[in-house]
């Protein structure tokens, strides 16, 4: 276990380091001038030269990179060119927003996958419908689903709000995770409001993942139900439902979990789109603004955070895999 943690920490460092190099190089190769982005189009030549020195852009490239890297070690992600505030401060309330949404997306996706795959495998009257769902929803892009949901649940039915993370923006709490904050401060109405805001964007982002996951899970469950251990269970008088949940589900979850690890990467990028549509004040929205204004420190900051989140997510998936399947050893 200790070995596993050390290995994952090392891979975290390697991923973050490569990301920082990549983002840095990309920014330099691109044509956008960060100083112009910082000062605006009407700045004087003198001001541009002064800012260039202030940002250290006159130094050799390699020195610039190590200056940046040195800052990273102190938690300094640099100054945003467009807002002129430290990136670390700007991200402080964006990261919880996105992580909270991501957690709900994964939660919805897993629930959806287990329900769909379970119904499909037990061969009820609706398994034909589910087969149709498997094929149609897996290919539906999340922005389309998001728009459809807005039209239906917000515009027509008025069930859920469409914009933002919370109705009353004056409240708040220690963590920045609004549902959790509400619980911590004893303000249940606050939590409930946050959940209502979460439902639509989380659903929109989770449908595609959940259906893809359900297909893998359903495959595993069907072969599990036809397996020799299921036959043994049947010969020992277990019911079909018991075989499904006691034996097949656990055996089928290994490939589904590996799939989930891969999908969670795709989920993070699909959140960029979903956050735009629901005006969700998270990393995705921040990132698209930053890219548009050539705001290198901001883009780099978001990339590093997302990279770290991805590495941690895969580590969690591996731990769960080992818990589910005794043959898997954590290395």
């Amino acid at each position: 276990m200790v070995r596993f943690i050390i290995r994952r920490l090392v891979s975290l460092v390697v991923v973050l380091f490569s990301l920082s190099v990549l983002v840095f190089v990309l920014q330099r190769v691109g044509n956008a001038d960060p100083v112009r982005a910082y000062l605006g189009p009407n700045a004087s030549q003198a001001a541009i030269a002064a800012t260039r020195i202030k940002f250290g852009l006159d130094k050799p490239l390699i020195v610039q990179y190590f200056d940046y890297l040195g800052g990273l070690f102190h938690g300094d992600l640099g100054m945003s060119y467009s807002t002129r505030r430290p990136v670390a401060v700007e991200l402080a309330d964006k990261v919880p927003a996105t992580l909270e949404l991501a957690a709900w997306v994964l939660f919805f996706a897993i629930i959806l996958a287990v329900i769909l795959a379970g119904i499909y495998t037990l061969k009820g009257p609706v398994s034909g419908v589910i087969r149709f769902v498997f094929f149609s929803f897996a290919s539906a892009p999340s922005f389309l689903l998001a728009t459809l949901m807005l039209l239906l649940f917000f515009k027509q039915l008025h069930w859920f709000p469409a914009v933002g993370r919370i109705t009353d923006t004056s409240g708040g709490g220690p963590t920045g995770f609004y549902v959790l904050d509400g619980l911590l401060t004893g303000n249940l109405a606050y939590s409930l409001d946050a959940i209502q805001h979460l439902v639509l964007p989380a659903l929109a982002a989770s449908l595609g993942i959940g259906v893809a996951l359900a297909r893998v899970l359903a495959d595993g469950l069907s072969s599990g139900m036809a397996s020799n251990y299921a036959r043994t269970a049947r010969s020992l008088a277990e019911t079909e439902r018991s075989i499904l949940f006691r034996h097949s589900l656990r055996n089928a979850s290994s490939p589904a979990l590996s799939m989930l690890g891969v999908l969670s990467g795709a989920m993070l990028s699909s959140l960029v789109v979903v956050e735009q549509i629901f005006s969700w004040n998270g990393l995705g929205q921040y990132l698209s603004t930053a890219i548009a204004s050539a705001d290198f420190p901001a883009v780099a900051g978001v990339s590093l955070v997302l990279g770290a989140v991805y590495v941690i997510l895969t580590a969690i998936v591996d731990v769960v895999l080992a818990l589910v399947d005794p043959r898997v050893k954590l290395t």
């Binding site: 251990y229 043994t232 020992l236 277990e238 656990r250 005794p326």
Partner: peptide
Amino acid sequence: RGRTVTTVFQDPMSSLDPTMTIGRMLTFV
């Protein structure tokens, strides 16, 4: 089935659930 008539199958590797301890399986019966 499973009470009056039971079975010993051919391949003991695939016929036992790999994710379950022997104890859990045996206690069930």
